[in-house]
Amino acid sequence: MINIDHLTKYYDSNTCAVDDLCLEINKGEVLGLLGPNGAGKTTTLRILTGFLEPTEGTVIINGLDVQRDPLKIKKSIGYLPESAPLYPEMFTYDYLSYIADIRGLAGSKKNSRIDQLADICSIREVMHKQISILSKGYKQRVGLAHAMMSDPEILVLDEPTSGLDPNQIVEIRSIIKEIGKEKTIILSTHILSEAEAACDRVVIINKGKIVADGSTDMLKKQAGSSRVLSAVLRKATHDEIKEFVMSLPDTPNPEIQNIEDGIKVRFQTGEDLRASFYEGIKKRDWVLLEMFQEARSLETIFHELTREK
């Protein structure tokens, strides 16, 4: 449905925001574009929606080139930029009515769509309020209603929950999830839990390049070949623990430190070693106070893939 081919964007000769990005997005997919600030997420979305022109590369949506047929493409995309920059002096209803006019909805069709969106986005109570006095959460919902006005096939949402309080985040996410059942959604965020909660597929970009692509489970599995096992022991010395851990298969140097309760050991393993670790401790007659195998979260994967080397 969306084919991004060798997309490159330079803001000036030294600033490369998107670097030879290739991506295919299928119909009905909810794709999370993840990356740290300045990774190139917003630039990619802006090129996708026709707001910016790429330096090189193409974006093809339903067989149409964004640069060649921008108006046709814009008709099939609903876009919510970051922090929903709406016209503050307008009233919610007037604003949505203006968007409906531009989107070519008129008469009863327009009224019924605005009515429908008021329910979907839960903005009925602010329809006759000025946008400037709305809370950030309501502004974001009005922005969502704006993006969905023409019932577009594709929704592009740039950090839709940024700056919202936890309750508002939950509300916006549930709306996105509901919409995602029928639409293709591209969602940019640097909040990993959001991508995990709402997206079928996650693409992590860093410095304009794709560094990971797949479902959240798949990414975890890929990165999960190494796990971290930690335990707190008593009746053992540092050297004994080190020797024991090094005797286990595929384990590098463990981190060992004294803590209040005993000695804490933490090491990376290639496979699940909980059983053999426990057996070893039992054999040596050490006291095991606690043992925990850390599941590698998307957060760790994200951090490893995007940190400055």
Binding site: K74, Y79, P81
Partner: peptide, 8 residues
């Protein structure tokens, strides 16, 4: 940005 991404 909103205006430029509408079909106008």
């Amino acid at each position: 940005e909103i205006l430029r991404t509408l079909p106008v």
